[in-house]
Design a protein around this nucleic acid. Structure first.
Lengths: 199, 199
DNA sequence: CCATAAATGTAGTGTTCGCTACAGATGTGG
DNA sequence: CCACATCTGTAGCGAACACTACATTTATGG
C-alpha cells in the first residue's frame, strides 16, 4: 500500500516554537494564528499532527518536561538534601530569567484558570508540576534514610515547600522580577534545609 | 439641570460577583456573558458603570485589596517579624482554601499571561502584589530597628520571600491543594524567620 | 507509470467574543 | 407638568476565534 506524502516540517522544531507561544501568552491567550505562524505551518498541518489546540499543548508540555529531565537528574544527584534544594532553586532562578526563554515557568504561566471548555488545562499543568514534587519527596525520603536530614524532618512537606517556592518564583519572574531578585528568594529558602539537616 | 435615572443595582454587590468570576476563570477566561449574568445586569449597564472589561477588572481588584486591607493591618501588627510571617502565611493558607471563595488568590489566578490586547492585565495584578511586598519590607525594616530581626537580615529579601511563598501557595491552591497542605508549606516557611531572629 | 495515501495551501465555516445603537423607562430640576 | 439626563433591556454589530472542506501536491507500493 502507498505511504502518503511525507510531512515537510520538523515536528520537534515546530513544538519548540509552539511551546514558546504558550509560555508567553498562556493557553487561552495563544491563538491558532500565532501558533501556526511561529511554527511555520498552516492550520491543517497543525490539526493533522496534533489533533487540536489542547493536543498541541500536551505535546508541547511533553517536550518541555523532557527537556528538563536531564537538569532534574542533575538536581537530584546532589549529595545532600540541602544541596538538592540549592541546585533546584538556583537553577529555577536562572532558567526562569533566561533571555532565551519567556520569563517564568510554562507549567505556571500556561494557565492557572481557564474558561469554559478548557477546564482541564490547569489540571494538566498541575499534574506535571506534581511529578517534580514527587521526585523531590522521594529524594528527601532517601536523605532521611541516609541520615542526611534529621529523623523528624517531613519529606513530603519539604518537597511541597520547594514546589511552592519555585511556583512563586515563576509568578514573580513572569511579572518582571530579575535574576538577582529570584536568587535572593532562593538563598533565603534554602536556609530551611540547613535547619533540617542532621548536625 | 436634571440628574438622570438612578442605577437600579448595587455596584459593590455586583463587583463582588464579578470578582468571583474573574477569580475562578481568570481575566481572559471570564466572558462578558458570565459576568453580566453573575452581576444580574445587562451589558449596557456594565459598560456605563465600568467602561469596559478591563475597567471592571480594575474595580474588582480595588475591592479585593480593600477587603484585605484590614486583614493586612492585623498581620503587620504582630509583635515580631516571625509572628508577622506566621500570621501572613497561615492566613493565606486559610483564605486560599476558604470554601466561600474560589481557591487561590485573585492576584495570581487573575492572569499571569494574556493574549494580544490584554498585555497590561498581568502588570496590573503584579503592581498590586508589589504593594503587599512593600508593606512587608517596611515592617521588617522596623523589626531590624527594634532589634527583633538580627542586623544582618535583609528586609527586602525576606519580604520578597514571603511574597513568593504566598504566590506559590496560590498556585497550589488553585490546582486543588487542601488547607492542610498549605499549612504545611506555611509552617516550613516560617522557620526561616526563626533563624533570622535576634537571639 | 499508475493507483493510492497522506500532507499541504487556500479559503473559508459556524460560533463566540467584546461591545454598542437604539428605543423606552425612570428619575431630577425648573 | 415638562424638559432633560441617565439607566435599562433588546437586539445585534464587526472582529476574532478554533477548526475544516477541498483541490492540489508529493511521496510510496505494485
Amino acid at each position: 500500500m502507498a505511504m502518503g506524502r511525507p510531512r515537510e516540517f520538523d515536528a520537534d522544531a515546530a513544538l519548540d516554537q509552539a511551546m514558546e507561544v504558550f509560555w508567553r501568552h498562556g493557553y487561552e491567550g495563544a491563538t491558532i494564528a500565532q501558533l501556526t505562524e511561529a511554527m511555520g505551518i498552516n492550520p491543517p498541518s497543525l490539526y493533522a499532527a496534533f489533533g487540536n489546540k489542547e493536543g498541541l499543548l500536551k505535546a508541547a508540555l511533553d517536550r518541555y518536561t523532557a527537556k528538563r529531565a536531564a537538569w532534574m537528574e542533575e538536581v537530584l544527584s546532589a549529595p545532600t538534601a540541602r544541596d538538592v534544594a540549592e541546585r533546584m532553586l538556583m537553577g529555577t532562578a536562572d532558567s526562569q530569567t533566561d533571555p532565551d526563554n519567556p520569563p517564568g515557568c510554562l507549567l505556571v504561566q500556561g494557565g492557572l484558570a481557564c474558561g469554559t471548555g478548557s477546564e482541564n488545562v490547569p489540571f494538566e499543568l498541575a499534574a506535571r508540576r506534581a511529578l517534580t514534587e514527587d521526585q523531590l519527596r522521594e529524594r528527601f525520603v532517601r536523605a532521611k534514610k541516609e541520615g542526611d536530614l534529621k529523623p523528624s524532618a517531613d519529606a513530603a512537606a519539604l518537597a511541597r515547600y520547594l514546589s511552592a517556592v519555585s511556583a512563586g518564583m515563576g509568578v514573580m519572574a513572569s511579572s518582571g522580577a530579575d535574576r538577582e531578585a529570584l536568587r535572593q528568594v532562593a538563598n533565603v529558602s534554602v536556609k530551611v534545609f540547613e535547619e533540617q539537616s542532621a548536625k
